[in-house]
Amino acid sequence: MNNRLRELRAELNWSQADLADQLAVSRQTINAIETGKYDPSLPLAFAIAKLFGLSIESIFSPDE
């Protein structure tokens, strides 16, 4: 799955640690999502979407 997490985080000048704190996950989780090594659970995807004020599908998209 592809995602725009790194891009959205950069727009707000947040570090991975900042984002991790707001989502109550580890920095490693944010890094793994950004690098595509880990796909978040649905609750975490919803939390990410809510934090950025976007829909899930505008952040995450399936592999072509």
Partner: peptide, 8 residues
């Protein structure tokens, strides 16, 4: 008590 990635 850990997050979802760590649990995996």
């Amino acid at each position: 008590n850990t997050d979802e990635l760590r649990q995996r």
